[in-house]
Structures are given as C-alpha cells and as structure tokens.
Design a protein around this nucleic acid. Structure first.
Lengths: 345, 345
DNA sequence: TCAAGCTATTCAAACGTTTGCACTTTTTTC
DNA sequence: GAAAAAAGTGCAAACGTTTGAATAGCTTGA
C-alpha cells in the first residue's frame, strides 16, 4: 500500500514546531537556531521527507518544467536534439515534458494547450510540416511566454531561433561535388514550407552559380516526405526521363540520398564512379552503407543543448528576450565518405 | 508582458458568483441552473480560461503525468518505444516526462527522486546496463507506486514486465541461418547483466542443439557496448584467431551485426555467399545497407503502447497489480534480407 | 526596573481547485 | 396556506508549501 509521503506538517507535528519553522530550517534560513535545524533535518531524513514539487509550483507559479514539441521522436536528428535538451535541463534541475506532433498542426496546438495548463516554464518547439500559419506561436510570444524554436524556425517577430547553417552546409556539399568533377547535380529538395528547405536549396544554387555552372530548374525536385522509397522513386523517374543524365545527387536529407543511391545502383550506375551522392544530417547509417554516404553533419545534440541553455537563461531572467535580434546559428560539417570521392590522391 | 492566466476566481468576480459555482458550472455538475452554466461558460471562453493543472494536481494528489526512464534517447529501438508511450499517454490525457540515464545507475536513482517529488502518477522504466541491484525499484513497488518495466526487465517479485520474446526471436534467427546451410554460427552476445542477453543467447543455443549442432563456447563472444566498431573489432579478432573459421554471425543487436559484416567484407569474405549475418532489432538502416541485413524485428512502438496501457490501467484502477504474475510478451518477427539468403528458390 | 533590542518561533494568508455541508429561495404537495 | 421538498448557490476547508508580519521570551544596559 502506498504510504502517503511525509510532509512538512508531519515533521512539524513530530517535533511540536510549526510548519514555517520546518520550512525555514530545511532551507537554512537565518533566524532558526542551529539546534532546531539539526533536529529538523534529522527527522526529515528519518521520515524520508521529499518536498512536494506540485505544491511548490503552485506557490511559486513556477514548475521547473519545460515543454518540448517535436515533429517525431523516431527520427535520428530529433532524437539527438532531445538528448541535448534533456542533458542540459537535467543538469539545471528542470524536467522535460515531451510531445510529438506527428507533423500534425492540430496536435501542435493541443500540445501547447495542455502544456499551458501544466504551467510549463517555457517552450521548445520545432514545428510540424503542416504548420504554415504561426498565429498560435505569435500569441504565446506576445503574452510573454518564453519560447525557443529550433531547427524548423518561423519567420515571425521576436522569435528566438536556434538553427544550423543550412545554407552553408548545402553550399559546402555542392561545392565538394563540383570539386570532385561532378557537373550535373540534382537537388532533391525538402518540403516547400520549411525555411530549412529553402536555405539548403539556396546553398545548392549559389554554389553552382559561383562555380559557373548553370542552374537547371528541372534538376531541383521536391522530395517532401523524406523516405528512401520516395527518393528512390523520384530518382528512377529522373533517370528514365531526363534527356541529359545527371551525374550527382545532393539530397535534402540522408533518406532521400540513400533512395537516390539505391535507384542509381539499380539503374546500373556505379557510385561514386558514375554518380556522386551527398546527403544531409549525417545519420548513423551513413558510415554503415556501401558505399558509405557523404553527408552534412548537423550538430543535433549541440543544438538541443544550446537552445535549452538560452531558454533557461530567459526563464531565469539571466538574459533578456530582446537580446536576440538574429538567430543563433550553429556550424555544420561536411563528412566526406566514399559516395562522393571520385578524385583519389 | 505575460498576462496572468484567468482563474476561476476571476470568473467568479466577473459574474458575482462564488468560486464553487464556477467550478461546478464548468464541470456540468447537477444543481446548477442551465442559465448560470451558460453564462459561466461564455465568460470562461471570453477570458480564455484554462484550468490550472498544478492546482488540480495538488488537490487531487494526481498529476496526470507519467515518468519515463530510459537508457538513451538516441537509440532507434528506444525511440520507437518512446513514440508508442507518447502516443497512448497523449490519447488518454497524460503527460510524459522523460529522462535518460545514459546507462548510469546514479542518474537512474536521481531521476526516480525528482519524479517522486513531482508527484508522478506512475513510472515506466527500462533500466541501465549498470543496474545490477534492484533495491531502488523494489522499494517503489512495495510502497505501491505503479511501475511498469519494459524491454530490460528485472527479476524481482511483483514487477510488471513488458518484453519481447527474445528467446524465440533468437531461436528463429539461428534456425533460419541453419536452414540456409550455415553451420558454424558465432553469437555476438549482449551485456551479461541484462536478461535479454541471456534470453537471446539461450534461443541461439537451443536452436543449435535442436538441429544437432554442437554448441561451442568460443563461438559465443560478448559485445557489450553494442557499436559497429566494437562488433567489427571482435569479428576481426575472431577471423584471425579461430582455427575453424565461422560461416555465420548472429548479432545480439544490429550494430554488432553490421560491424561483423564490415569485418567480413574487409577480410575478403562475401556476404551471404561465404558468411551469413543476422542482427536483432531491425533498425531502419537494415534495408539500406548492402547487402541488406536480415534482422529480428522488435515491436518497439507496440511495446511502448502496451506498457503504457497497462500502467494507465493500473493507475486508474481498471486492473489490479496482482493480475500480473507473468510478463507480457510480444512477438518478434524475423525479417529475412540478403545478408542471410544463401538458398535461392 | 523597565524599555529596548535580540532571537527563535508562530500566525495567517496565499497559490487555484474541489467538495461536503449549510443556507436561501422557490416550488410542490396536501 | 403551511409544511415539505427541490433547486440553486455560497462557505470553508483542504491539498503542501512559502513568507511577511506578529509575538513571545530572553538578555542587555542605564
């Protein structure tokens, strides 16, 4: 049978003291005699006293809990972000309550509501693919709720955004392919409503331009879902329909890239000899497949950690919301592997 | 500026009614006139009233929150479990607070403490590799805290365990290898203190025995960490030291199996012609690597969902703790892919 | 001797809900 | 037309904690 946790009142009764004295004694407040403090602490220990965080939250209107809203948990990149969030939150004494939206805006909204009900101290959000209207976030910001966006960030006033340098990552990846002698580079792009998709596409385009390679619209194809199957299908179609066969694929994510790789292999093309491939995100499997997949590393853990640091600093008023007029951008790193190495030294 | 959320008192003041009436009106309690109910609800709507879950928790000694303690978030299998947990919890109106132990028993214990402080309604636990003494869990069970273990389950009285049929999965995998003509099958086993490791090893051993193949102790090697690198190293050593070369590897997990595959390839062995390989867990990358990796599918999502159902049923007293005298076991499924297909039909 | 000044402690209200009970007021019943 | 029943609402306590203000019991000093 669950024994009701000992409370301050129980200790008070035991020692014939008032609740306030117990509270202060436990907190080492001045004005309590050393003797009393000692006794109180002993009894607390003996009774296995554990402060009731709920009561504390009610009193202080602070829950020491942050809410994380994420599209999917079963996603390598996001899981690394969660890990970073959890790590920092734990070390600073906060709880993390987690919900996934499964890319549905309705779940996003309802999660916000339950979290508000739960008096969360702040939000960390990466919004869903369905989200095109940011009204529900703007309202929160206006009302002064601490909220930090990561990875998928909105373009709205006063939003605090932590992101990866998608533009540079894509630029590097594309430049690398060019440097390896690939010229006809296809970009499998991401969903149109995500800023990260645009940034990556822009990096790709700029790299081509800066190397004097014409940008062909038919070489930019949307791979919105981001599964290997989708990438494979799209690539297959391209290979059988394009008059001028591409010699490289730059995927907006690793899944699409791996799909492209499979399609190329099936089409009898050798990777990297005939076709070069680079992905984005550097999922675990990149080094396990054959040929190993070059990819742009996104620092997910660091992103989660940094975003949480910022959120907690805001919550604790160590920094001011207005200090952020531009996003916090983390560096990517191109991991060159065999799928794009054509020039051997 | 954050506007203090409207409370029941605010509505009461607005309508010149008492807090109790508001509370009852909002809950459609009998004994409140339809007219009042209507007015109250309108005003609540207008003031954007949102019940304070913290106050409710304090009053009811129920937080509608469950605590999940998991070894790692960045782990395909566990992330699918979390997803299942989150899904069921959300649909039944519960929050999920998540902590990862990073395989450290100290974090496990301290997580339990903060969760207890937070008046969590119940626990879901998969313990760390370091955990060998289950005292801290036994105590919780004795005190009547609802707690459900999943995947890594303890062998202690009254524990409610949800697990996968590791024995059968391993048995199937090994039998499959035998049916494909492999005879000298190495098992890369898991950490010794996890029951799942024993079960998988037992399935492997029994399959050999039942097919009249002698079990050789030197063919069972511990791959405790479970990374591709470790699997690769171990396999390399085996290939260069064993006088009688093995012709198959059954990995306790996919990472070890992939390591074995890489080592075999480097050693000039062809997969599956010379060596057959089967993993365990069916991680996403299994179908993406070349050759694709056969693996035992573990229903992670279903496990998380089932475990949560049970936990919530216990919390809500829909079922009794004593109804569980044996673990809930979920079926595995062998996914045969190219890494172990030697007999072509 | 007594006001002043400490020290150690207690009181009481507050955070936002819920809920058993009591209290009005209205309606029904005979 | 008076008593009984019903309907609608309010009071107050409780959940566990914190905290400003109040109080009690000392010691000190002139």
């Amino acid at each position: 049978m669950k024994i009701g946790q000992a409370t301050i009142k129980d200790i008070a009764r035991e020692l014939n003291l008032s609740a306030s004295t117990i509270s202060r004694a436990l907190k080492d407040y001045p004005g309590i005699s050393e003797e009393t403090k000692k006794k109180v602490k002993e009894v607390a220990e003996k009774m296995n006293y554990r402060p009731n965080a709920i009561a504390l939250s009610l009193r202080k209107s602070r829950s020491f809990t942050i809410g994380v809203i994420i599209p999917e948990v079963v996603h390598f990149f996001f899981s690394t972000v969660i890990s970073g969030i959890e790590e920092v939150a734990f070390s600073r004494g906060y709880n993390v309550i987690l919900t996934q939206t499964n890319e549905k805006i309705e779940r996003e909204k309802s999660s916000i509501n339950t979290m508000l009900s739960n008096q969360i101290d702040g939000f960390m959000v990466s919004f869903s693919k369905e989200t095109e209207d940011f009204e529900h976030f703007s309202k929160l910001i206006e009302q002064g709720y601490p909220i930090v966006f990561f990875d998928r960030v909105p373009d709205i006033p006063h939003a605090i955004n932590v992101m990866v340098d998608d533009y540079q990552g894509a630029y590097d990846a594309t430049s690398h392919l060019i440097s390896q002698g690939y010229q006809k580079i296809v970009h499998l792009s991401g969903p149109k409503n995500l800023k990260i998709s645009h940034e990556r596409a822009r990096g790709y385009t700029d790299a081509l331009k800066n190397h004097g390679i014409p940008v062909r619209p038919e070489y930019i194809v949307e791979s919105a879902v981001g599964t290997p199957d989708e990438g494979k299908e799209i690539t297959k179609k391209l290979l059988s329909s394009l008059p001028d066969l591409p010699d490289a694929f730059f995927g907006n994510n690793d899944m699409a890239a791996v799909g492209a790789m499979l399609a190329c292999k099936e089409h009898g093309l050798r990777v990297p000899e005939d076709v070069g491939i680079v992905g984005f995100s550097n999922w675990q499997f990149c080094s396990m497949i054959d040929p190993s997949l070059s990819s742009v590393f996104q620092p997910g853990f660091a992103m989660g950690a940094k975003a949480t640091e910022v959120l907690l600093d805001i919550i604790e008023k160590k920094i001011d919301v207005d200090d952020f007029n531009s996003p916090i951008v983390l560096e990517t790193e191109l991991m060159v592997r065999n799928s794009s190495k054509r020039i051997f030294k």
